[in-house]
């Protein structure tokens, strides 16, 4: 598997704290093409620590593309140049010897920088806390097979539910809009019978929260779908628009 090391120049955003002024710093590295992108950053950090310098703060956890913790903007693209993968799944074999790579944090007013490449995405949770659930308590629920759900509908709901909450949609959108994230959750429940009782209240609550947090509006550029590591479709946004419009015009407004 292993090929010859490649030599790279990295321009990485460094910012000591939320209020500090950030700037790009340059690093050079020689790395195996089989290493992952984050392993490459590990190596840079290891070298920095050996020199007693502060390592670059960046987040990752599962490194299997499912937890949604990692997220870097690599040469202007969230999660880098390869479609449908998270940053942790990006491998160095996708870069060429001599390349210069720009690494930036997700940038959005609603995602303030904590340090270097680490941002605060807690806004996503705030949105989910206003309606990203089915209101059932533990216990007292019907048998799992009591509600048959067509395979196609279950599959569509799954496609929406596959969102990993990484925030790449916000990072990619020129308006830093969270519509893809919010619509994925709204869609999952709008498609399933379990989500029907709260369907229209849910969409109003979640959109209201999303707007309040300072995410931009959707102007249908579909950059979100193109950069989404899970390929969440913008048809979810259409579904949410439909539900929201219907809820706004027909149902009771949110208090």
């Amino acid at each position: 598997m292993s090929g010859k090391n490649i030599n790279l120049t990295l321009k990485i955003w460094r910012q000591a704290s939320p209020k500090a002024v950030g700037a790009f710093a340059e690093y050079k590295i020689s790395i195996s093409p089989d290493a992952s992108f984050l392993e490459m950053l590990d190596e840079i950090n290891d070298n920095l620590e050996k020199k007693n310098e502060l390592p670059i703060a960046f987040e990752s956890d599962c490194r299997e593309g499912i937890c949604g913790t990692c997220g870097l903007v690599i040469n202007g693209q969230p999660h880098g140049p390869i479609p449908k993968i998270a940053t942790c799944q990006l491998h160095m074999r996708n870069f060429k010897d001599g390349d210069t790579i720009w690494i930036e944090p997700f940038r959005a007013k609603a995602f303030p920088i904590i340090k270097d490449l680490v941002v605060d995405r807690s806004g996503f949770d705030s949105i989910l806390q206003t309606g990203g659930y089915v209101s059932v308590n533990t216990g007292g629920v019907p048998d799992a097979n009591a509600i048959p759900i067509s395979k196609d509908i279950a599959s569509l709901a799954f496609d929406a539910a596959a969102c990993i909450g990484c925030g790449a949609c916000v990072a990619a959108c020129k308006n830093a809009s969270a519509m893809l994230f919010v619509s994925a959750k709204v869609s999952q429940y709008a498609l399933l019978p379990q989500g029907q009782p709260e369907r229209y209240q849910r969409v109003q609550n979640m959109v209201a929260k999303m707007d309040e947090l300072g995410f931009g509006s959707c102007t249908n550029t579909y950059a979100c779908e193109a950069e989404c590591p899970k390929g969440i479709s913008v048809t979810n946004i259409a579904r949410m628009n439909r539900d929201y419009i219907k809820a706004s015009i027909t149902a009771n407004p949110v208090d």
Binding site: V73, N75, G76, E104, A110, N175, Y222
Partner: peptide
């Protein structure tokens, strides 16, 4: 929308990758 959307991203990216993920018409 334009003004609000600009505010949603106060700091721009150094490298703009939008040509790789969206059409020029839409942007």
């Amino acid at each position: 929308l334009w003004l609000e959307n600009k505010k949603a991203r106060p700091q721009k990216y150094a490298v703009n990758g939008s040509s790789k993920n969206s059409t020029v018409y839409s942007r």
